[in-house]
Computed example of a mutant assay.
Amino acid sequence: MTDHTAHPVGFIGLGVMGAPMAANIVRSGRRVLVHDVDAEVTARVAADIGAVPAVELSELTECSVVVLMLPTSAVVRSALLDEGGRPRVAFEGGTVFVDMSSSDPTETVETGGLLREAGLRMVDAPVSGARERAIAGTLSIMLGTDDESAADLAVPVIEAMSSAIFRTGKLGTGHAMKALNNFVAAAAFTAAAEALVAGGRFGLVPAVMVDVLNASTGQSFVTQHVMGPHIVEGAYASGFALPLFTKDVRIAERLQRAMGHTSPVCDAVAATMGDALEALGPVDHTRAHEFWSTR
């Protein structure tokens, strides 16, 4: 039996989440080759976490598992496949690509199909937990796959970055679950921010409002971990960018439409966050509260 732990792990995408995630794989004892479109980032992160820099994608072909943590499913596809849908580099047959990005599930299925035609495999395993849990290695993972043997290779790598892995079903279901989860989180965020604006104008103290919400039925992850430090105290540094959060809500919106039913709450949240994004650009998502409070 082949010992796949002897093979290095590849990691593509070394941003806010990717760098600490790759660091946790290194800490698990695996040799890790890291790659980013920015060669300077590749060199810096590799030096910081004890990984091997891979300036070219072709340097990852010795890896049996390659993790991707990129902005969109379109970027994932373009990183791996050329315009004709063929692999950009000659990965060994059976290589498993683990897309941990917040990708569009329909595009994940398409990319997975093209990889399968080339003898390669894909698992979708998006994350929840923000940067703090990426650093701690306690992310929640939603894993979808059509290939259990691919999951068998991917799971030991994923475990180095996570505290819980939820098996969601076929390929693409992980990304569907991530988008729907983030829609629910965005609905809670927009509702809580709207309440703080209204309450503040009426004379309520925002810090007291958050305390009441956290002791009452309005309590959520948002009221516990976002509203206090990042809005009431003004840190505005959750580590989750407004463009990415808005993108996830729009993925959920498209998914619901593809399922053939209306989604009035998702539509409203997508529009509200889209207004803030148009006005503010690529800022931390908590800055949206500032924008909404001026209207």
Rank of each mutant, 00 (worst) to 15 (best):
V155W: 06
A118Y: 13
S103I: 11
S128K: 12
S101I: 06
V109S: 03
V155T: 14
M122A: 13
S128Q: 03
D147A: 07
P156D: 06
G93M: 06
V155N: 01
E148W: 04
D104Q: 14
A125V: 00
A136G: 05
G112D: 09
R121G: 12
L81F: 08
S162V: 05
R131V: 15
I165L: 08
G144E: 00
P156H: 02
G113C: 02
T95M: 07
L153F: 01
G144L: 10
V89Q: 03
S163M: 07
L81E: 10
E107M: 15
E107I: 04
L143M: 15
M100Y: 06
S102A: 06
I165R: 09
D147R: 13
G93C: 09
F166A: 13
V127F: 10
V96C: 08
F166W: 14
V96A: 11
D99A: 10
T145K: 01
V98Q: 00
P87L: 04
S101K: 11
T106K: 07
F166S: 13
A125L: 00
E110G: 07
E92N: 12
D152I: 13
A90L: 09
A150K: 04
F166I: 12
S103F: 06
V155I: 15
G119M: 12
A90I: 05
G85C: 00
S103K: 09
F91C: 10
L143Y: 04
R116F: 08
M142Y: 15
M122N: 05
V109H: 01
S140T: 15
A150T: 12
P126S: 03
D82R: 11
T111C: 11
T108S: 08
R133W: 06
I165G: 07
V98N: 00
R88E: 08
V98H: 12
